[in-house]
Design a protein around this nucleic acid. Structure first.
Lengths: 327, 327
DNA sequence: CATAGATAGACAACCGGTTGCACAAGCGCA
DNA sequence: TGCGCTTGTGCAACCGGTTGTCTATCTATG
């Protein structure tokens, strides 16, 4: 069934049917409701491909999936995509996956050149983000989850600065001793953002930050073991892990060393992932509503595609959840 | 730039250009190479939307993403999708995400009715799989990763029966004592398949299976704790965990109980996921090449869409990796 | 040398929508 | 009553490809 069939059946022109469905152009209310009733009764869905050809749209948006095994925060990504999917579906739009390895643009150029999508969503942007640079150079609509250094980029993210500041100062006020920071990949913008929050959180609590107890690129067990030795020597009372993977490493190493938590040392983490939820003792962590984040990102991108004006957004969908590990 | 522009520039008809690109229809080798050279030089990509409208295709396939938090094996899913993405890209086809919750068909009907994709890939099929039933009823092309009960379905999967049989008999021959099975969700077909492998693995080693030491739906720490108590009472020498999540639970509980591995009890797992890779002691596990699995699935689906004949496939992309936990 | 058959390419219809423009009917107002 | 303006609808071109059918040219054959 096509709009021609509908038109013939109702003795009107296909133009009128098209207008009734899209809501654009002049049409009488009576004709319009007649058409809508008919297509609803017959469960007619106009072809999005034909619509797309005429409008030069695909009704698809891509999400860039960072395809490095050891690097992606899968639960975060899943939640985000769930949110995007929900928001997009409301406008008949779907999510297409674009695998990208490292800081290469991978399949992105094929997807853009073939015009397979109307826009792109980037997650967890890097300092020099190749996909972002590419999309900017092509003047292709996109929204980045996580801030970027280019002012032209539309971004949305949770307030990681504020979240980390809050967590840090809460811990500081609890008198947990010296607070070390165990950070992730310094190429991630988010790593620096959280770092700033940590610094200011300490300052708010009247503590002078000490660069000697801040570590980045904590990505392996041997490295964590070495750091842990230093923490012991420096008589650190509490460690803030910048993500759940780092926290896992921390827990593994403390267990091996026979360090008891929270008796000997305390620990808090970003993200209360499944692994941490099951941990013993339970882990103090920041909980984020990543789903909502994805939803916002998709909403913003769709508005961008529709030519509406879009402002950067900073969300506060997080919560500090205090558990045993910082008691 | 369109094929009309190319045609005009080369003083030939758009038909000829179309034929040169697609390779269909009669065309001289000289004209063909002339056209191909021109479009290559000018980096011309014919519109897939227009092509799609004419051919009634979208050059997209959907992968159903089971959107239950606690249920999806994310690393498995990621690897699969990476493989699919790679195989599909070679035919200008992309992967679209279709979120589905539980055994509901979710967004699937919208995607099918709107003809957003040419076919669907299902992962980890259930006993009564709503998406599979729906797609069959709509006569819509799809491939299932994991077997189904409906003979009309095209399936591909690793040989989980054989893998589990092999693992079980290897362990049995190592004289690890009585071998218990800790299984997952009984709604998953794969759970039953592995179970059969376990039974036959024991028989091959001359051991009579004992239903009393087979557990299913091991999905929480309390349940695991109860099971562990039984295993101790029954003097079990080794546990086979049907997936990495169950193995994690097992490790957590044994640690709490002060059970030493492999001294007091041995353990082996399906999947050598990141979490297990870091475990201490290292865990004996089955390693699967999920990426290749996804690649095969996408290949098969594309052939199905192209009207070629497709046979079910059973892959043997796995390896038993023996580590300390079964020494 | 005439003719049949093969081959290369062009024409035009088609896929299923959108949209600029033309036109007729209905209305208010002088 | 006549005029201009608004409103509702239709026509046909267009988006950018594919493909069935037809023609012109070339080759092989008796």
């Amino acid at each position: 069934m096509t709009i021609d069939d509908v038109a013939k059946e109702l003795n009107i022109s296909k133009t009128t049917v098209s207008r009734a469905i899209s809501g654009k152009g002049r049409i009488s209310e009576s004709t319009r409701s007649k058409v809508l009733a008919y297509i609803k009764e017959h469960n007619f869905k106009p072809s999005l491909i034909a619509k797309g050809l005429a409008e030069k749209r695909t009704y698809n948006i891509a999400v860039v999936w960072p395809a490095d095994y050891d690097y992606v925060d899968l639960p975060f990504f899943q939640s985000c995509v769930m949110g995007m999917s929900k928001a997009a579906a409301e406008q008949d739009t779907d999510i297409l996956i674009c695998m990208v390895k490292g800081n290469d643009i991978g399949e992105l150029d094929r997807i853009v050149e073939n015009h397979k999508v109307d826009g792109v969503i980037l997650t967890r942007t890097l300092i020099n983000d190749a996909p972002a640079d590419y999309l900017l150079s092509q003047n292709f609509p996109f929204v980045a989850i996580g801030s970027t250094e280019d002012k032209r980029t539309i971004t949305v993210d949770n307030d990681h600065y504020e979240a980390c500041r809050e967590l840090t100062s809460i811990l500081a006020l609890r008198k947990v001793g010296r607070i070390a920071l165990l950070g992730g990949n310094t190429n991630h913008i988010i790593t620096r953002t959280r770092y700033r929050g940590y610094i200011d959180g300490l300052k708010n609590a009247g503590i002078e930050p000490d660069e000697d107890i801040v570590y980045f690129d904590v990505d392996s067990e041997p490295r964590m073991a070495r750091i842990l030795a230093e923490l012991k020597k420096k008589e650190i009372g509490c460690a803030i892990c910048m993500d759940d993977m780092i926290c896992e490493l921390f827990l593994t190493c403390t267990r091996k060393e026979g360090i008891s938590i929270p008796k000997d040392m305390r620990v808090a983490s970003f993200y209360d992932s499944r692994v941490l939820t099951n941990a013993n003792p339970s882990i103090t962590a920041l909980h984020f509503e990543d789903r909502h984040l994805g939803q916002r990102a998709a909403d913003m991108l769709l508005r961008l595609i529709n030519g509406e004006s879009v402002e950067n957004e900073v969300l506060s969908d997080y919560e500090v959840i205090l558990k045993e590990s910082t008691k």
